[in-house]
Design a protein around this nucleic acid. Structure first.
Lengths: 208, 208
DNA sequence: ATTACTATACCAACTAGACGGTTTAGTAAT
DNA sequence: ATTACTAAACCGTCTAGTTGGTATAGTAAT
């Protein structure tokens, strides 16, 4: 007769690291479903509207259910950010494969991966970042990824400074788009990618 | 006995357009003081903590006093954004004067003005934008300024696309800094400006 | 095979506090 | 009388997080 409710709330969030897609009973993972919905919500309505209540609407899951999977909002945002970081790494590897043999393929793959991840949901990136800005610790995984990327950019033919500047441009373009100040890059993404890679080639040629 | 509170809340915000610095009695404008404090608050603590209560603390002005000058929070944010836009315009003119005779002075002045405004309070820019993102209409003045700037960038020797890319880079660099992902431009601002202007010169020379 | 128990995976209702904003009442200078 | 405030109580809404509970599935002793 003794309630076991106490023990429940203490034992979650441990599975955040593991890349599980479904629970042990074979049910499709509600956790993933929640994260998808949270991404959609944030992409459509902005970070400010990422609330548990809104997620209840979006997912059909009760607030208790949400909090079962994510002990608090920080945990949710952290998980969203981790997915973003992981996704970018995957993309980057794909582009790198395609670019084998191309000049400065490393730099190009990094630029294209950044563009591609942001293309899916321009608002998502900054929105999560904005949410995470309340609690800077949440940005740790992103910071690690960024450090690693920057270290690689130092190896670019263009030199680290110019290479990083191009990466900044990618993110700046998304920022402008997200704020409705202009279309992405003030042209379509394909064109922007052309301009970007064109710059890499031109700058590589003329030497640093 | 009829309350006059209603009429009060209806008559403010009209002076937002005028650049008044002090009221007709010669007192230093409380309005400006509030805006300064709001900027500081947002720069130090982030947009999420820009609340009337926090502003009461920061300014020493009563809540009634705040609401006397800004009928609601939107009006406050709007005024903050307008100051930002105006300030950038002033800076830009200053840089343009200094750059007279330099190659692609127009582009350079725009880049430097953007850098300079963000230098004062890196967090401020995005923070206001984040606040304004809830109500996209508030971004209208910024959008106008951006459109005008982009039109000018089209006249650059580098071509509009590359010129805009450089402007994106400036804002991207600030974004990264603000999120604590790296220092501004991963070096100091002076160096970043050198790299930026160096690119303008190099790209101008090789022709587009 | 049944009973007893545990862990997992949820849910509905509630609470406490923050926040935007209103209102009332009053002060002080012009 | 009007303008420019101060001070403080108050209200409705929104939000994160809590509580207590249920349903399901698996485990293990008998």
């Amino acid at each position: 007769m003794v309630s076991s409710a106490k023990s429940v709330s203490a034992t979650n969030d441990n599975n955040a690291a593991a890349g599980k897609q479904s629970d042990k009973c074979g049910r499709p993972s509600l956790r993933e479903h929640i994260l998808d919905a949270a991404e959609a919500l944030v992409a459509e309505q902005g970070a400010a509207r990422l609330t548990f209540d809104a997620l209840v609407q979006q997912t059909g899951v009760s607030k208790g259910g949400l909090l079962y999977h994510f002990a608090n909002k920080d945990a949710l945002v952290q998980a969203m950010l981790q997915r973003l970081v992981d996704r970018k790494e995957v993309r980057r590897a794909e582009f790198l494969k395609d670019l084998k043999g191309s000049r400065d393929a490393n730099l190009k793959s990094i630029l294209l991966a950044a563009m591609s991840c942001e293309e899916e949901a321009p608002a998502l990136h900054s929105a999560i970042l904005a949410a995470a800005a309340n609690n800077p610790e949440l940005l740790a995984p992103l910071r690690e990824q960024t450090d690693a990327l920057f270290a690689e950019l130092d190896e670019s033919e263009l030199g680290g400074e110019r290479a990083r500047l191009l990466l900044f441009a990618v993110h700046g373009a998304r920022l402008f788009e997200q704020l409705g100040l202009c279309q992405y890059g003030c042209c379509d993404r394909e064109r922007f990618a052309e301009v970007l890679l064109g710059l890499v080639d031109d700058l590589g040629r003329t030497g640093k």
